[in-house]
Simulated scan of single mutants.
Amino acid sequence: MNAETSNTVDLPAVRRLEAVGFRAWPAASVQYDGSWQVRLTAGHPSLRLNCVVPLDPGDFRDAAIRLEKARKRFEAYGRPLIVRETPLAPPPLIAMLDGEGWQRFESVSVLSADLATIELPDTMDHLPSHDIGYFVDASLKVEEADLIRKPALAEILSAIKPPSGLFVIEDPGKGAIASVLCVQDNDLAGVMMLAVAQSERRRGLGIEILSSALRWARMRGARSAWLQVVTTNEAALALYGKLGFAEVYRYHYWSRDGQS
């Protein structure tokens, strides 16, 4: 039974993880409509950077009017309106979306782990870089992503305020083959953008680079780690489960046509 269906979701924990998540992955434009956060980023397709996030279960006032206002803002950015449903979303809003034919099209599990209980190597196999340009190039190569994202990704990483560690594993003949971003926000460490090159998987590189990132964060005073993973990514969920990560809550994306 997951945290969502067990009806035991810890709302203060959700609020805190949402807050550190916003700081770890900052949108270019953030506006508030009541307690709804409207996030938009013209140059990057990340759903977390382009969505409306209601943050108070009781804030349902004039929902239809506010959604239409948000839709026009998204339209100006050339994007469809996306609503991100966390346990903080007003239930009447979600019922309204469902009743009007909106569809959930992606679900994400937010996991956390106690860094004191994770077995990590005594030494760091990989040291963090602070060279954003180098990390962006490495990350795009590992993920085989479109190079057109480079300026926007560099802007996002440059906007992260908490201390960040940029980790890359390189092969002498192949270049970058694994990468991960770790954002240390006081006692919480956020793991972002973990990727292993398609040709290098099932070699333990994911655990290797993640262990270095977590050890770096623990040495800096982080006590817990968190990350987000799409619920259909069984390989990633198995990897994180081995390290002791457990689900805190889930969130879901909604759109009118069931896609981003």
Score class of each variant (00 low, 15 high):
4 E>Q: 12
4 E>W: 13
5 T>D: 11
7 N>W: 01
8 T>K: 11
8 T>D: 11
10 D>G: 05
11 L>E: 12
12 P>Y: 04
15 R>I: 00
17 L>C: 04
22 F>N: 10
26 P>L: 12
28 A>M: 06
28 A>G: 04
37 Q>M: 14
40 L>D: 06
40 L>R: 15
46 S>G: 15
51 C>K: 05
52 V>S: 01
54 P>F: 04
56 D>I: 08
58 G>M: 04
60 F>V: 15
65 I>Q: 12
70 A>I: 06
70 A>E: 01
71 R>V: 00
72 K>A: 14
73 R>Y: 00
79 R>Q: 11
79 R>I: 02
85 E>C: 04
86 T>D: 03
87 P>Y: 04
88 L>W: 02
90 P>K: 11
90 P>I: 13
96 M>I: 06
100 E>M: 12
105 F>D: 02
107 S>G: 14
109 S>I: 08
110 V>W: 00
111 L>H: 03
115 L>W: 08
117 T>P: 00
121 P>G: 09
126 H>W: 13
127 L>E: 09
127 L>N: 00
128 P>C: 03
128 P>W: 08
132 I>K: 10
135 F>L: 10
136 V>S: 09
136 V>Q: 03
136 V>F: 05
138 A>D: 11
140 L>I: 13
142 V>Y: 07
143 E>A: 15
143 E>P: 00
144 E>C: 05
147 L>I: 10
150 K>M: 07
151 P>R: 10
153 L>V: 04
153 L>Y: 13
155 E>D: 14
156 I>Q: 11
158 S>R: 15
164 S>T: 07
164 S>C: 11
168 V>Y: 03
170 E>R: 12
172 P>W: 08
172 P>D: 13
173 G>W: 05
173 G>Q: 14
174 K>N: 08
174 K>L: 09
177 I>S: 05
178 A>R: 06
178 A>G: 09
178 A>F: 09
179 S>M: 03
180 V>P: 00
181 L>V: 13
183 V>P: 03
184 Q>H: 07
185 D>A: 01
185 D>L: 01
185 D>V: 00
187 D>Y: 06
188 L>E: 10
189 A>V: 06
192 M>G: 00
194 L>M: 09
194 L>Q: 02
195 A>W: 04
196 V>N: 02
196 V>L: 07
197 A>D: 15
202 R>V: 00
202 R>F: 03
203 R>K: 15
205 L>C: 07
205 L>N: 08
207 I>P: 00
207 I>F: 06
208 E>A: 14
208 E>L: 10
208 E>K: 14
210 L>Y: 05
210 L>P: 02
213 A>K: 05
215 R>P: 03
217 A>T: 09
218 R>G: 03
223 R>G: 15
224 S>E: 15
224 S>I: 11
225 A>P: 02
225 A>E: 05
228 Q>G: 05
229 V>A: 06
233 N>Q: 10
234 E>V: 14
235 A>I: 11
238 A>G: 09
239 L>N: 06
240 Y>T: 06
241 G>Y: 08
246 A>T: 13
246 A>D: 04
250 R>T: 11
252 H>K: 12
254 W>P: 02
254 W>N: 05
255 S>V: 08
256 R>L: 15
258 G>K: 01
259 Q>W: 10
